[in-house]
Simulated assay, not measured.
Amino acid sequence: MSHDDHSRCSSEEIEALCCELLDNCTSEQRAEEIRARISECTCCSTRLDCEEEVRQMVKGCDESTHAPETLRARISYQIHVSQTEVHWQG
């Protein structure tokens, strides 16, 4: 696969590989295999890099820092709406 052939990448596959790698639930050898697979595609490599960066930022957050109350309320509302929305297909 060329570095620019993202059309052959499965989003679900790459998501699963990123989680397996970044959640530290794999061996060092398997981690190398995952990194090799992801490096076959520039888009997937970028996705992994971004995910690693976000996780590092989250780890670096001070637990005593809290989101503004308005943001917390909006997020809570969106979660509630997402959980209660029902789609009927019949």
Rank of each mutant, 00 (worst) to 15 (best):
residue 8 R to D: 06
residue 86 V to Y: 10
residue 36 A to F: 05
residue 68 P to G: 04
residue 55 R to M: 02
residue 88 W to S: 14
residue 85 E to K: 15
residue 77 Y to P: 02
residue 77 Y to S: 09
residue 46 T to C: 07
residue 44 C to D: 06
residue 22 L to Y: 00
residue 17 L to V: 03
residue 87 H to N: 10
residue 40 E to H: 09
residue 9 C to L: 10
residue 31 A to W: 05
residue 87 H to Q: 11
residue 85 E to F: 10
residue 56 Q to L: 09
residue 30 R to W: 02
residue 66 H to D: 07
residue 54 V to M: 08
residue 8 R to W: 08
residue 27 S to F: 01
residue 68 P to K: 06
residue 41 C to I: 01
residue 25 C to Q: 15
residue 65 T to I: 09
residue 65 T to Y: 10
residue 14 I to Y: 03
residue 58 V to K: 05
residue 41 C to G: 05
residue 61 C to Q: 12
residue 18 C to I: 15
residue 13 E to C: 02
residue 55 R to C: 01
residue 19 C to D: 13
residue 59 K to Q: 06
residue 30 R to M: 03
residue 26 T to W: 03
residue 21 L to E: 04
residue 6 H to C: 08
residue 23 D to Y: 07
residue 33 E to N: 11
residue 71 L to A: 11
residue 42 T to E: 09
residue 29 Q to H: 08
residue 80 H to T: 12
residue 60 G to C: 04
residue 48 L to N: 03
residue 71 L to Q: 10
residue 22 L to T: 10
residue 72 R to K: 10
residue 82 S to L: 07
residue 31 A to C: 00
residue 85 E to Q: 13
residue 42 T to S: 14
residue 44 C to W: 01
residue 23 D to N: 07
residue 48 L to K: 04
residue 57 M to F: 00
residue 33 E to L: 08
residue 16 A to L: 11
residue 20 E to W: 01
residue 9 C to W: 07
residue 23 D to F: 07
residue 26 T to D: 00
residue 40 E to M: 09
residue 26 T to S: 13
residue 87 H to E: 09
residue 53 E to N: 04
residue 78 Q to N: 07
residue 80 H to R: 13
residue 77 Y to F: 10
residue 16 A to N: 14
residue 51 E to Q: 08
residue 52 E to I: 12
residue 4 D to G: 07
residue 35 R to Y: 00
residue 33 E to G: 04
residue 79 I to R: 13
residue 1 M to H: 09
residue 24 N to R: 12
residue 51 E to K: 05
residue 1 M to D: 03
residue 3 H to M: 06
residue 50 C to V: 15
residue 11 S to L: 11
residue 2 S to C: 05
residue 80 H to W: 05
residue 85 E to Y: 06
residue 55 R to S: 01
residue 8 R to A: 12
residue 40 E to N: 08
residue 22 L to A: 01
residue 63 E to V: 12
residue 36 A to M: 03
residue 40 E to A: 05
residue 69 E to I: 10
residue 79 I to W: 01
residue 19 C to Y: 11
residue 78 Q to H: 07
residue 5 D to A: 10
residue 6 H to E: 11
residue 55 R to V: 00
residue 5 D to L: 12
residue 84 T to W: 04
residue 5 D to I: 12
residue 39 S to F: 03
residue 16 A to R: 15
residue 48 L to T: 01
residue 87 H to P: 02
residue 86 V to I: 13
residue 84 T to F: 05
residue 41 C to Q: 03
residue 1 M to W: 08
residue 65 T to L: 15
residue 16 A to T: 14
residue 25 C to N: 15
residue 59 K to N: 06
residue 78 Q to F: 11
residue 63 E to G: 12
residue 8 R to F: 10
residue 12 E to F: 04
residue 4 D to L: 12
residue 69 E to L: 14
residue 8 R to K: 13
residue 42 T to K: 12
residue 46 T to V: 06
residue 68 P to M: 05
residue 46 T to N: 13
residue 57 M to C: 05
residue 86 V to D: 11
residue 32 E to K: 11
residue 74 R to G: 01
residue 72 R to W: 03
residue 64 S to I: 00
residue 36 A to G: 00
residue 7 S to H: 15
residue 52 E to V: 08
residue 53 E to T: 02
residue 3 H to D: 09
residue 43 C to G: 06
residue 70 T to C: 06
residue 68 P to A: 04
residue 46 T to E: 13
residue 72 R to Q: 13
residue 45 S to I: 01
residue 75 I to K: 11
residue 17 L to S: 04
residue 22 L to R: 02
residue 26 T to K: 05
